[in-house]
């Protein structure tokens, strides 16, 4: 699709890197790096994703530049979903019931607001 035939040697190199990175990420999981553990795991996963996308999926070689827009849009939209949901979860306060209504407010003549 790119018009360029990527050499099998390049593919083999990428494959080798992916294997090494996999073993690396499994190995690092057994080291106690505190908060860096998930950081390292995700970083390695992102690198592996980039290798597959750029070389195996020909993102590096395609002349159809719109491909980058589509990929970026997908990733950006996912980031959006995660970011806003995440922000909610970590900034919630416990819900406190409001104080009772005063007796003389304007809606007190309406039946739906009368206490049962």
């Amino acid at each position: 699709m790119s018009g360029v035939t990527v050499s099998r040697k390049t593919y083999a190199g990428v494959w080798g890197s992916l294997v090494v990175l996999t073993l690396l990420t499994a190995g690092i999981a057994y080291l106690d790096l505190g908060v860096l553990n998930p950081v390292a795991a995700i970083t390695i996963a992102v690198i592996k994703m980039a290798l597959v996308a750029l070389f195996f999926m020909h993102l590096r070689y395609t002349r159809i530049r719109l491909t980058y827009v589509f990929t970026a849009a997908g990733l950006l939209w996912l980031a959006l979903l995660m970011a806003f949901t995440w922000t909610d979860v970590i900034t919630r306060h416990p819900i406190v019931p409001p104080p009772p209504w005063p007796a003389n407010d304007v809606t007190s003549h309406m039946s739906i607001f009368k206490a049962k």
Binding site: T87, D88, I95
Partner: peptide
């Protein structure tokens, strides 16, 4: 970017 306006009374964070 606006979906939380359906959730103002749901228990969602006030800041969000």
């Amino acid at each position: 970017l606006v979906w939380g306006h359906h959730m103002f009374v749901s228990g969602q964070s006030v800041y969000v």
